[in-house]
Amino acid sequence: MREELIISGRMNPMIDPQLNIWHWHIPLYLFLGGLAAGILFFAALYTIRGEEKLYPAAVKKAPFITPFILVIGLLALLLDLNNKPYFWQLYTTLRLESPMSWGAWTLMVVTPISFIWCALNIREIFPSFDWRYGWLKWLEAFFTRYKVAMSWVLLIFSVILGIYTGILFSAFNARPLWNTSILGPLFLASGLSTGAAYIMLVSRSHTERAAFSKIDIVIIGIELFLIVHMFMGFLASTQVQIEAAGLFLGGPYTAVFWVFVVFLGMILPALLEVLELRKYRVPVLIPSLLVLGGGLVFRFVIAYAGQASRWLY
């Protein structure tokens, strides 16, 4: 029997548009947070390995952008709140069940470290910079002394910052598209990839660029594997997840996802990076900007498509 299914009734124009509660603020923050996590991860990693000289852009130059993008990201998050004057309630409790809660605390660890990191490297930009006051000089000496310890903290918390946004989304079983544990690793990989791309962009050293090209190719490979793996999981799952995957397989997000995220944001830059390593002349600007743009579009697509996916009843 051919069956028509008509659902009417819940016509509540004031509520239903509100169900897409998260607008541009959230994906913008997801991108900036992931980018900062990626940059700081490499900065901490090469400090711990004592390779500051080999990777000067990763350790010293690239992290200068992180306090700015973290603050912009935090402002975006604040703007997104409906009850803005109450934002401090986040810091009156720690709820491990809620990724947003421990994510907020993670930001409270990473953001100050990003400022300290820049302060310690300020002479990279202003060689004759002087802290002027004795206690500031004491603080500088203190953090310089414990730089490796701080790097370990940063290494761990930058991974948490990169992965928690994906875990936050995947914890919503009401939005079948997000309800996959692949999303955490995928967001982390995307953050590391955009971080590597930014480091390539600002690096002046050929060996450093080549190293980050290789790193980026590997991470993009991991991302592509995770994406395929995610769709295999969806298609082998329940009807709601099959329909969620359908948003990208013929649905409204198909073109933007496969063209802008997968091809232009992953496959093409990876190919260009391979060509560059094979000694072809590829301006570094192109693969770097493609990866960064792809990372941004990826967060927007996932945030919007996820809110469009739902249970059917």
Partner: peptide, 10 residues
């Protein structure tokens, strides 16, 4: 409540 919208989404 800070109005973050997590519960609405969840």
């Amino acid at each position: 409540c800070i109005g973050c919208g997590a519960c609405i989404t969840s």
